[in-house]
Structures are given as structure tokens and as C-alpha cells.
């Protein structure tokens, strides 16, 4: 087994371990930290898939902005210091059964589909992505910028509303 395969297995293991810890640990702060681990693994997988641009974006935007915003929200709303309400174990078991059935079904579909042979050469570069963003997908690009603007204004309005005067 070559070094590349070993690194790939390690990255996949880190990603899956982060994902499992992010949903199973009791403390929400540890959940957010495991989410960061998982996102870092996904960024490494993007590098394996040839898109360095998306790996950088994943680290800067997901880890640097979204995960840090989640950490801020955890600290501001202090869910760590409240006592945990005991969950009904039957409900947890049901949730586990649903997600396990989902995974088994997806895995069977993936195994049984005959995928065509890979063709991996092409232009993955940043220049090609930029050209696509400003020609073919210009309208969704503008729509996303509008959505982000509305989200910023909405977040400001919502957080000003609850401020005690």
C-alpha cells in the first residue's frame, strides 16, 4: 500500500471520527470542536479530489467563520452549564436505527451501481472556476450575494430585537 493510500485512510478516519463525535458527545462545546476536526478532514479530502480552491475555502469559511460563530453562540447562550435533561433511550435507539438503515441503503445503492470509468484530467484551476462563476452561473452568483445580504440584515434585526432596553 502506497503512502498516498495510507494518508487517505487516515484522513477518512479523522473525518468519520469527527462526525461521530460531533453528534454523540454530550457537551455541546466538544461537539463544535469535533465538527472542526471533521471539516478539516473534508478539506483534506477536497485536496485528494484535486480542488485546492475548495479546500482553502472550506478552512477559511467553514472553520474560520461558521464553526467560530457556533462557538460564539455556545458561549453566549451557555448551554454547557445547564443540567442535561435525560433522554428517552428508546428514542435514541430509534434515531440510530433510522440513520443506520439510511447508511446501509445508500451503501447498497453505491455498491450495486456500475460507475463508468473515471476521467480525471481537466482544468481544475481557480481561473476556470472564476470564469464559470461570472459567465455560466452569473445569475445564481448574484442571487447568493443577495441572500447573504438579506441574512446579514436579518441577523442584525433579530439580535437587536431581543436586546433588553
Amino acid at each position: 500500500m502506497s503512502l498516498q493510500e495510507l494518508v487517505f485512510l487516515g484522513v477518512a478516519g479523522i473525518t468519520l471520527a469527527g462526525a461521530c463525535l460531533a453528534v454523540t458527545l454530550k457537551n455541546v462545546f466538544y461537539n463544535a470542536l469535533s465538527l472542526i476536526l471533521c471539516l478539516f478532514g473534508v478539506a483534506c479530502l477536497f485536496i485528494f479530489l484535486g480542488s485546492e480552491f475548495l479546500a482553502v475555502i472550506e478552512v477559511i469559511l467553514y472553520i474560520g467563520a461558521i464553526a467560530v460563530a457556533i462557538l460564539f453562540a455556545i458561549m453566549l447562550s451557555r448551554p454547557m452549564f445547564q443540567k442535561n435533561v435525560k433522554r428517552n433511550p428508546a428514542k435514541i435507539l430509534q434515531a440510530f436505527a433510522v440513520s443506520a438503515a439510511l447508511f446501509v441503503g445508500l451503501a447498497r445503492v453505491i455498491r450495486s451501481t456500475p460507475w463508468p470509468a473515471a476521467e480525471t484530467d481537466g482544468d481544475y484551476g481557480l481561473a476556470a472556476i472564476g470564469k464559470n462563476l461570472l459567465t455560466v452561473s452569473l445569475v445564481p452568483f448574484e442571487a447568493v450575494s443577495l441572500v447573504l445580504l438579506v441574512a446579514i440584515i436579518g441577523a442584525l434585526v433579530l439580535s437587536a430585537k431581543g436586546e433588553p432596553r
Binding site: A22, V85, I92, V98, S99, L102, F103
Partner: peptide
């Protein structure tokens, strides 16, 4: 990716904390 999806669905169904639900959504 399907393992990540299954983990996210489990978190959505099993957790009761809103921040944990948001974390599952990101997954």
C-alpha cells in the same frame, strides 16, 4: 459522504439542543 450524512441525520433526530442541531445540519 453517506457516512457523514447518516451521522448528521442521527444528530438531527437524537439531539435536543438547538446548537447541536445546527452542527448536524453542517454535517
Amino acid at each position: 459522504s453517506s457516512a457523514l450524512f447518516a451521522a448528521g441525520v442521527y444528530g438531527m433526530l437524537a439531539r435536543r439542543n438547538l446548537v447541536a442541531l445546527l452542527i448536524s445540519l453542517e454535517l
